[in-house]
């Protein structure tokens, strides 16, 4: 157990005009740990995730990230080139809609290879080999490597998006409802895949979901959000089996069986 977390979110506040979307959110994440953020639509969970990723400006608080030298650096203090470099190498963001995370007109191989090329890889054969290996890993037939993702099913697109993000071996992956628009059977396959990859690669991940079963399956810890606030946090099975906050109890009581 390391004393310094990989990611530390302190008092993060995000406003949309006069509406407060996220209010004083704080949490920490350690390497190898999966954290689920649950709550109903409009609870601020996706906004929190996007603010952590730097896609939305925070109106208060900070996000700190452990750099390779071990220091915990505030992201807003890093120069933009450094931040963007982190975002495309050490970080990954998996969008709910794969269209937001893929280049639909670029082949599957090009989609997976992009981050490698962005990181400076200039050997076509090696980029190709790496992309092939990752397609296999996310259970996409490597024969489809030159097909554009618009010819893929929703589940395949989502797996491709995950391959595209993981190819640079990020330390931190942020996922926004990764199984959101998928059929139940396809969801199961994707969840199993994410579960395996997270464990094999020792990733730290934050997963936003409204599905408590997803949190149960994937996450070590979870946060419950309501109205922009984190109302409860703790061990996943403890929060699901012995929720303390009235809203958590309502959430747990509202699903059939998580």
């Amino acid at each position: 157990m390391s004393a310094v977390p990989l990611l530390a979110v302190r008092d993060l506040t995000v406003r949309f005009g006069r509406r407060v979307a996220v209010q004083h959110a704080s949490f920490e994440l350690w390497p190898g740990e999966v954290l689920a953020i649950v709550g109903e639509s409009g609870s601020g969970k996706t906004t929190l995730l996007r603010a952590v990723h730097g896609d939305l400006p925070a109106d208060g608080g900070r996000v700190l990230y452990r750099l390779h030298d071990g220091t915990l650096a505030p992201l807003d203090g890093l120069a933009e080139p450094v931040r963007r470099h982190l975002a495309r190498t050490e970080w990954g963001f998996v969008h709910q809609n794969p269209r937001d995370g893929l280049r639909m007109a670029v082949s599957a191989g090009g989609n997976v290879g992009e981050r490698l090329m962005a990181a400076g890889m200039r050997h076509w054969g090696r980029i190709r080999a790496e992309a092939t290996q990752w397609l296999r890993r996310v259970e996409i037939d490597p024969a489809r490597i030159d097909d554009p993702p618009r010819t893929f099913s929703g589940g395949m697109q989502q797996r491709l998006q995950i391959a595209r993000v993981l190819v640079t071996r990020p330390r931190l992956v942020l996922m926004d409802e990764p199984t959101g628009g998928l059929d139940v059977s396809v969801q199961a396959r994707l969840l199993d895949l994410i579960r395996g990859l997270v464990a094999d690669l020792g990733l730290a991940a934050v997963i936003v979901t409204h599905d408590l079963a997803v949190a149960r399956l994937l996450a070590h810890r979870m946060l419950v959000m309501q109205g922009g606030r984190i109302v409860e946090s703790g061990l996943t099975d403890q929060v699901l089996d012995d929720p303390q906050h009235p809203y958590s109890q309502l959430l747990v009581a509202s699903v059939l069986q998580a």
């Binding site: 495309r88 082949s107 191989g109 490698l116 090329m117 030159d146």
Partner: peptide, 18 residues
């Protein structure tokens, strides 16, 4: 501005792939 030109190589990658 940030000299992020990975995308440019994606275009060439696609050409070779095709």
């Amino acid at each position: 501005a940030l000299a992020e030109y990975g995308l440019m190589h994606v275009k060439l990658y696609e050409d070779i792939a095709r």
